[in-house]
C-alpha cells in the first residue's frame, strides 16, 4: 500500500481544504499577515513547488492534479481540481520577482478567501469527499489522494467527524485509502502538538481533529521524522496550535510526494 508510482498515466491528487471563516482574518504570529493571507501565500508557493518538481527535461509533466476547496458559510471550489500542466499555464495572475538580476514571473492561483462568518467544516469535508470520489473514478490505480485541511477554530455548525471518517475508510484507490492531514493553526504562542500517535486528553475539537486524521503512511512518516525526529510509529497526520514555521513544514510533508 502507498507504493504506486506517481506517473503521467497514474497521477496523484493533492486537495487543499481551507477554513475561510472570519477568524482567519486575525494576525498570524509575527508574520505581519493575517492567517488567511499567510495561508494563501503558502498555498501558492506549495502549488508552484509541485509544478516545478514536474518540470522535467523540456516540458512540464502531469504527475499531479491539485485543487483547493474552502468553507465558511458554505463550501466551494476556490481552485478547481486540474493537472499541474493546466495550472502552470493558467494561473490567476502573476507577480514579479528577481533571480540573479533577471526578472521572473511568479504565478498565483489563489487570493485570500477569508471573511466568511461561519465555520461550516462539515460542508467542507462533504465537498471534499465528493471531489475525491469523483477523481478516483478516473484514477483508481493511482497513489491515494491527499487531503490537507487547515483550520484555526471550532466548527460552528454540524460536527464533521463522521464525514471525515467516511473519507478515511471509504474513499480509496487500489493503493490505499485517501490520506487526510489536519492542521490547526494558532497565532498565539502556545505549545504545538505535532504528529502525535496517541491523544487521550484535549478539547472536543482537538480530539475530533485527531480522530479525523490518517495514520501517516510510510512515505509521509519518513519525511515527518526527518523534520520532527520525535515522531513515533503510528503517528497521525495532525498538528495542533501550529505556528507559521510548522504550517510550512506540514505542507512540505504533505505535498512532496515525488523524490
Amino acid at each position: 500500500m502507498y507504493e504506486a508510482e506517481i506517473s503521467r498515466s497514474n497521477p496523484a491528487l493533492i486537495l487543499f481544504l481551507f477554513d475561510c471563516s472570519y477568524s482567519m482574518s486575525e494576525r498570524y504570529g509575527s508574520t505581519g499577515l493575517t492567517k488567511g493571507q499567510y495561508l494563501t501565500r503558502l498555498c501558492n508557493e506549495s502549488i508552484d513547488q509541485v509544478i516545478l518538481s514536474c518540470e522535467k527535461g523540456d516540458e512540464i509533466r502531469a504527475y499531479f492534479h491539485i485543487g483547493v476547496l474552502g468553507y465558511g458559510d458554505s463550501a466551494t471550489a476556490l481552485v478547481p481540481i486540474q493537472s499541474v500542466v493546466d495550472l502552470a499555464y493558467h494561473p490567476l495572475r502573476f507577480t514579479r520577482s528577481e533571480i540573479d538580476g533577471i526578472e521572473v514571473k511568479v504565478p498565483m492561483w489563489l487570493e485570500d478567501p477569508t471573511a466568511k462568518v461561519n465555520t461550516d467544516m462539515a460542508a467542507g469535508f462533504r465537498l471534499a469527499k465528493k471531489a475525491l470520489t469523483q477523481w478516483i473514478i478516473q484514477h483508481g490505480g493511482s497513489f491515494p489522494p491527499v487531503l490537507i485541511h487547515v483550520s484555526d477554530g471550532v466548527w460552528t455548525t454540524e460536527n464533521p467527524t463522521g464525514i471525515a471518517k467516511e473519507i478515511l475508510s471509504g474513499v480509496c484507490t487500489a493503493d490505499g485509502s485517501a490520506i487526510v492531514l489536519n492542521i490547526h493553526i494558532s497565532g498565539k504562542d502556545e505549545e504545538t502538538l505535532a504528529f502525535p500517535a496517541r491523544l487521550t486528553a484535549g478539547t472536543e475539537h482537538q480530539l475530533a481533529l485527531f480522530a479525523m486524521s490518517s495514520v501517516l503512511p510510510d512515505p509521509f512518516f519518513r519525511r515527518a521524522t526527518e523534520i520532527y525526529p520525535f515522531v513515533e510509529v503510528g503517528a497521525r497526520g495532525y498538528m495542533f496550535n501550529a505556528q507559521p514555521k510548522d504550517l510550512s513544514k506540514f505542507f512540505d510533508i504533505g505535498t512532496r510526494l515525488r523524490g
Binding site: 509544478i51 533571480i99 511568479v106
Partner: peptide, 15 residues
C-alpha cells in the same frame, strides 16, 4: 541557449 519562454522553466533553470 534553451527556450526560456515558459515561466516555470526559466525559474527552475535560474535556480
Amino acid at each position: 541557449s534553451p527556450d526560456l519562454s515558459r515561466h516555470t522553466a526559466l525559474r527552475k533553470f535560474l535556480t
